[in-house]
Design a protein around this nucleic acid. Sequence first.
DNA 1: CCTACCGATCGGTAGG
DNA 2: CCTACCGATCGGTAGG
Lengths: 197, 197
Amino acid sequence: MTIEAPSRRRAIEDAASGLFHERGYAATSVREIARVLDIQGASLYAHVSSKEDVLWSIVDRAASAFEAAADRGKAAAEGRPPAERLSALVRGHVEVIAADPRLASVFLSEWRHLSAGRRAGILERRDAYEAPFRDVIADGMATGDFTPTDPALAATFILNALNGLAAWYRADGRLTAGRIADHYSDLAVRTLTEDHR
Amino acid sequence: MTIEAPSRRRAIEDAASGLFHERGYAATSVREIARVLDIQGASLYAHVSSKEDVLWSIVDRAASAFEAAADRGKAAAEGRPPAERLSALVRGHVEVIAADPRLASVFLSEWRHLSAGRRAGILERRDAYEAPFRDVIADGMATGDFTPTDPALAATFILNALNGLAAWYRADGRLTAGRIADHYSDLAVRTLTEDHR
DNA sequence: CCTACCGATCGGTAGG
DNA sequence: CCTACCGATCGGTAGG
């Protein structure tokens, strides 16, 4: 049975993100993707133009999800103290990962297999995405809410900590996404607050 | 010119870790590794028994480097307060990564391409390596030095933050390894110390 | 979405 | 360490 194009395309991307997440893009063959969908490898090409095209759709969708979360986080915490603004960004980031760890992990780990142009585009978007993290840290340092440190390095430290989640999060794991978000936002904010005992 | 076996073997591993780090294990061919050494692809097999064998040597060596650093860190900070013990572990971890980011990054990212048995062994060693991080956090919570939190989750947060370094550290970068180690150990310890203002 | 097929490349071996 | 070669698999196309 032939399935309508848009949902079939999406089903291909879902099967692919599962495999790319588990084995990596380069170690996954188009025939393995097709096998998940119970069709022939060559039949995939009725819906996608290349293997890289599938990777690109996944990566682009993940990037958009992170961007949208950051926009919501910024809007929700606008005018609030730096710690709350950082917390909102961290929560948004964790939620995107927990909502679809395979999508996030492909975005975070497999973008290097994109063509040069797309790779450069993703790197730019990642940098733009990270800017508000750096900015809120710098703001917090300026207001005295945060300990003086290197804002770019602190942002990288925090984002790397959060991104690790994509590799190990399981929806049926010990901790719910909400609890992880609570803990992670506490850990992230504390990273920047001096111990005054 | 034929080169003596042990150093040649090591040269192969070095070339391979560079390529595995850049493109990933699955996307690197044995011919590319050989090309770096200016020999034929088939000639590699005079020194190694398989491509996976090369990966294994790299991963095993990296694992040993982390284990040795943790042992040194534990010994150096024995009997000291939790914050200092955690700091010693963090510094050791950062130093291993900075000493050879390609080695560390292959260990951290490419172990899933190992055979099932070796993969399981590495997972066990990783868990054993992380135990002292969890333990010192739990100790610090017991003594009241650290804020109550989930020790395993906090250890994962910190280790994920540190591991990100393997992907972006450059010896000729903006910050020296020493400065990064300073900042990272501060950030890591602060993660666990409450703001008491 | 299938069958049949393509050239290219893969990891690895034989035999020097 | 080289030349010559192996079967298997790769991403992708033609033509229905």
